[in-house]
Amino acid sequence: MPENQVNPINPYDRARDAGRSATGKPEEAALLARVIKGDQDAMVAIYDRYAPMIYSVALRVLKDPGEAEDIVQEILVQVWQNPASFVSERGSFGAWLVVVARNRSIDRLRRRKPSESVDEVVLPATTNLANEAERSIMLEKVRQVLVGLPTEQQKSLELAFFEGLTHTEIAAKTGDPLGTVKTRIRMALTSLRKAMQS
């Protein structure tokens, strides 16, 4: 099979994939407005924009192309069936999709029922993954920050975010004290936020 379908072992060991699936005009809000009217072409446009990102996040977590595709279908069919609920104060639609893709994948990984709170995810309006040029620059910066983190911080964030381990499970796995694990994750996210704001 093609190598590029194999899930990368180290998510941070890469630099070439800036740019990626395009977003940009027409704005996602306009597309969602058309989806509300039942416009299939608009829904397909949303699919073309976001399916690769949703799929890649799901595949990163689940390591199973079939299951990752299920996640894409599940989320975007939900958008198709109930688009009005997405035109709210959620912040960026793209960022919402990323978080929900991750959460649904972790739920599936852990054989949990879909998170009840998942649809209530509210993101700050500043997390805007919609503009192509900004997005590509921003994500490259994100990767640089993540790569630059101390290894223990990277590892803790990785285990929590992509493998869905609880802080207790991470502590058991790494042999570190619980408080240390918590601090590492918080510091990783703080470093990321500071870098993105600077």
Binding site: P8, P52, M53, R60, V99, L123, T127
Partner: peptide, 18 residues
């Protein structure tokens, strides 16, 4: 925090859909 996490998630390498 969710905004930060969305960035972490969006930083995965894009994979082609099946």
């Amino acid at each position: 925090a969710l905004g930060d996490l969305a960035l972490v998630g969006a930083s995965v390498e894009l994979q082609p859909l099946p």
